[in-house]
């Protein structure tokens, strides 16, 4: 099972923007070591959550044809700590997509308060890396990731029929 750092999408506009949420819980084992008696979500995992939100947005924009790999974190600024019981909201926007790469800008909030700005460059590795050949199969967008989006589509279409 891949480690997935977002719980669900709450908004998804193909090729434009996506919003995902993540509930932080003490059931996450690493929080007991980071830090003992004072659990704080590691900032690196907040970056990963943004990379997943933005990465799926970028991947979907090209029908999951490309292998989208985080190439560079352009900036990541954090304003506060994230503790168990907090809810994170990741808002990612596509700034630019080309055959080789994509850039995204992102904001993270915690319980509605601004938490971080994280801007990322993704590489479409088949069109980069000067001629290196990668496996045919798209090892980036496995079912684990795609199911996140499928669940979003299911819940939005379900919401549509009930309202």
């Amino acid at each position: 099972m891949r480690w997935i750092w977002i719980d669900k999408f709450t908004d998804f506009q193909s090729g434009v923007r996506a919003t995902a949420i993540k509930n932080v819980t003490l059931a996450e084992e690493h929080l007991h070591d980071h830090f003992p008696a004072y659990p704080v979500m590691p900032a690196s995992l907040i970056v990963e959550g943004m990379a997943q939100t933005a990465g799926i947005l970028v991947g979907e924009a090209r029908g999951f044809e490309e292998k989208v790999i985080l190439a560079k974190v352009k900036q990541a600024r954090f304003r506060r700590e994230v503790r168990p019981g907090d809810q994170l909201q990741y808002d990612a926007e596509i700034e630019n997509v080309t055959p080789e790469a994509a850039m995204t800008t992102g904001r993270v909030s915690v319980n509605g308060e601004p938490l971080a700005e994280i801007d990322i460059v993704f590489s479409h590795i088949d069109n980069n890396m000067s001629g290196l050949v990668f496996p045919e199969e798209n090892f980036v967008f496995t079912e684990d990731f795609k199911s996140l989006l499928m669940n979003y589509n299911v819940s939005t279409s379900a919401a549509g029929t009930t309202s």
Binding site: K72, V121, N128
Partner: peptide, 10 residues
């Protein structure tokens, strides 16, 4: 590095 060239162009 190579990815920086793309970033710079953007």
């Amino acid at each position: 590095e190579s990815i920086d060239f793309l970033d710079i162009v953007f």
